[in-house]
Design a protein around this nucleic acid. Structure first.
Length: 736
DNA sequence: GACCTGCTGCGGCGTG
């Protein structure tokens, strides 16, 4: 066997970091014929081998993060194995996707077998036999989803202390995907409960895409101690970016498909008809209609069709097929996808990334862009924005979508992204965690629950009285019940929830119909809006005719068809736009420079938008009167805009929020100014009182059980921004 | 007009 020379150390770090790895791991690295470790891999060795500090690793997708973590982790575990010191699972890796777990399992199997450290993949598609094996002989590395770990706590609560007695590391893959979400709140709670069961701290290691806000991610990883988390970041060489934002105009009032107009699709076709590309769109319906439009153009040219849609309603098989086509270098392939392909599923090397329509968030745009330009090639991004061709209203003349896109690109280039809310306790997820701990421990006192989940756990923002209110609300709804001695147990309703497998996820999904063909199920579609037999459906990049709807079986039977089909009426909730983006939009309007990344039409649209902005007097006012309506421009995120609506409605003023603006019908500027003066004079209302007026405050899975009072408090903290809204109204009261 | 993610235990059936 010839042995390549060992990798050399980089100049910026200790050259002997490689020497800290276990011999077996070193040997494996040589056998991979790697000429050197990447800087991030080298820098990660020392803090991880040390084992007494939390580490945040930030690098682009495919930046070698997995190896950066597992070379040192495996080194430590291999040494333990040699000394015969293992009596349990030593490393848990929490992953947001089953596909990532499968991928990682494949990548680690060879290395781990070499050094005698078992590695087990564990999620809903893994058979019981492998799970039983690990439970009988717990050791090594466990790759698992948060939901499967939750299930372990609920159904095998008495065994977790034994399984994790020797836990050294908790690794979180794709940490950015959890930031500020219900699932993230669950993950943080599970990390704490793992350490609690083990009886000691474990080193937490977060893997993340290059984030704008690394401190927030560090704080997420270890609440209250984010400052002490070691950050290892691969800044790269500032990957070169080729970027163009293209403007289009079309009669959007006539268009039904939304999104891109014909001219945009035709240009897009020329960009993506060869090579390997990803076209990101903002809805599943658009993924279907855009893939169909591109396919039609390929058919016109009598070319093999390289276009495949990819979204969350397609079956796992169809998605895997699209991913496989993208990976296969021998023939051109382009996927038209939603956020499904934002996360780190390996799709190989992508030539061009396209965003159709204004991107949903800056963080999302960054993720999407990160899919392009691997292995040294520059990242290539096209953004297509279509605006109204003959604008009739002042709002249409503002060119809001184009300006929002420019604002987002500017923020992206300045490495900014939306900050997550890590302060406000996620009450819906706390309900889940209360039930889960009660199941795990076969009951617990209120004090013990409060200590484990809040004081020491992942909900430190909860005060004692609010926690008592929560338990009372759960008692009233029979989620928990109290024995005479004070012991809390799951109640009748709590047992029902715990005994259904849907309990383990922190997020909720509506029930759907399966779309069934002769060859099996292709995916799912919403139960409402209803479809009838005979309807033509565009789905999975093809046309189908509905043969029969079977409500009892929750199935829609379809057969292949030809002709004008439309995608199913997918329903979804809006992705809120943040403060930072809207504030930046105002700066774009006020500015004079035309970014070089805009094409000619885009530059014209920007100038039109700026002209309309000035003509409406928005450079020094926040209200414009048009057609008997007052149009309010807070230039703040959706949260502030919603709060303004609630404040106005409370004093009997009809107000509606639509994107960047709030509209108040039948009211001129001077009357609106009087209303604002009245509201300002009354002073800021109690946010919880304001929340009480809101009819439907449910946003998360277990909100339903909180009761009116706690739900109002939760809504006030998460969905309202009273100071922001009052600040805006004060401006209106002063100047209009 | 508007994203994404996840899931246990057990009974029933077919096969070796």
């Amino acid at each position: 066997m010839t042995r390549p020379s060992p990798p050399s150390g980089s100049e910026t770090t200790a050259p002997d970091a490689f020497a800290l790895l276990h011999r077996g791991v070193q040997r494996w690295v040589w056998e991979q014929r790697w000429t050197s470790l990447r800087p991030i891999q080298e820098q990660a060795i020392r803090p991880i081998v040390g084992g007494d500090t939390d580490v945040l690793l930030a690098a682009a997708t495919a930046g070698g993060k997995t190896e950066a973590v597992f070379l040192p982790v495996c080194s430590v575990l291999a040494r333990d194995a040699e000394h015969g010191e293992t009596t349990g699972i030593q490393a848990v890796c929490l992953s947001p996707l089953k596909a990532l777990i499968n991928d990682q399992h494949t990548r680690l199997t060879d290395l781990c077998a070499r050094i005698g450290v078992p590695v087990t993949a564990w999620h809903g598609d893994i058979g019981a036999a492998q799970k039983d094996r690990l439970r009988e002989e717990p050791s090594g590395i466990l790759l698992i989803t948060p939901e499967s770990l939750e299930a372990m706590f609920v159904t095998r609560g008495s065994t977790v202390a034994r399984l994790f007695a020797d836990l050294r590391y908790i690794v979180v893959d794709e940490l950015h995907a959890f930031l500020g979400t219900a699932r993230g709140a669950q993950l943080r709670s599970l990390m704490h409960r793992l350490e609690h069961a083990a009886g000691h701290r474990a080193a937490r290691i977060g893997l993340s895409a290059t984030l704008a806000d690394l401190r927030a991610a560090a704080e997420f990883l270890r609440s209250g101690e984010g400052e002490r988390v070691a950050v290892v970041e691969d800044r790269g060489a500032g990957k070169e970016l080729l970027l163009q934002v293209r403007g289009y105009v079309a009669d959007l009032r006539e268009e039904t498909g939304g999104g891109a107009c014909d001219a945009a699709v035709e240009h897009l076709y020329q960009v993506v008809r060869t090579g390997h590309n990803m076209v990101f769109v903002n809805s599943r319906a658009e993924a279907e209609s855009c893939a169909a439009a591109l396919s039609a153009l390929a058919e016109q040219d009598r070319l093999p069709n390289p276009f495949t849609p990819h979204h969350g309603s397609l079956s796992a098989e169809l998605r895997a097929h699209a991913e496989q086509r993208l990976k296969n270098r021998s023939s051109p392939a382009t996927v038209v996808c939603t956020a499904t392909l934002e996360l780190g599923i390996d799709v190989g090397w992508v030539d061009t990334v396209v965003q159709l329509g204004a991107p949903p968030t800056v963080a999302g745009l960054r993720q999407r862009l990160g899919r392009s330009g691997r292995s040294g090639a520059p990242a290539k991004l096209y953004v297509y924005v279509t605006e109204q061709s003959l604008p009739e209203t002042p709002v249409e003349r503002l060119r809001l979508d184009l300006v929002q896109t420019v604002a987002m690109v500017e923020l992206l280039l300045r490495r900014w992204c939306e900050p997550p809310d890590l302060e406000t306790p996620h009450l819906s997820t706390l309900v889940q965690q209360v039930l889960s701990v009660l199941a795990q421990r076969s009951g617990a006192s209120a004090l013990r629950l409060y200590r484990e989940l809040c004081v020491e756990g992942a909900f430190p923002g909860m005060d004692e009285r609010t926690f008592a209110d929560l338990l009372r609300a759960l008692g009233e709804r029979e989620l928990v019940t109290q024995e005479r001695g004070g012991l809390l147990l799951p109640g009748k309703v709590g047992e029902l929830l715990l005994n259904h497998y849907s309990f383990y996820s922190a997020f909720d999904t509506a029930e759907e119909y399966a779309i069934a063909t002769a060859d099996g199920d292709m995916g799912t579609m919403p139960i409402s809006p209803a479809v009838d037999a005979g309807a033509l459906l565009a789905f999975g990049g093809r046309s189908w005719q509905v043969v029969e709807v079977k409500p009892a079986e929750r199935r829609v039977l379809v057969v292949p068809a030809r002709g004008e089909a439309v995608p199913p009426g997918f329903v979804g909730s809006p992705v809120p736009v943040g403060d930072g983006v809207r504030q930046r939009m105002r700066e774009v309007y006020l500015g004079a420079d035309v970014p070089r990344y805009l094409d000619e039409a885009g530059a014209i649209l920007l100038e039109e938008g700026r002209a309309a902005f000035r003509k409406m007097g928005l450079d020094d006012a926040y209200v414009h009167e048009y057609d008997g309506e007052s149009l309010l421009f807070p230039w703040r995120g959706d949260r502030v805009a919603e709060t303004i609506c609630h404040l106005l409605r409370r004093v009997g003023v009809r107000a509606a929020h639509a994107g960047a603006l709030v509209t108040v019908p039948d009211m001129d500027r001077s009357r609106l100014r009087a209303v604002a003066q009245h509201l300002v004079a009354a002073g800021p209302p109690d946010p919880v009182e304001l929340a009480r007026m809101v009819a439907d405050k449910r946003r998360h899975k277990y909100d339903h059980y909180l009761g009116e009072d706690l739900l109002s408090r939760s809504y006030a903290a998460r969905a309202l921004d009273v100071p922001g809204a009052m600040e805006f109204l004060a401006g209106v009261a002063e100047s209009g």
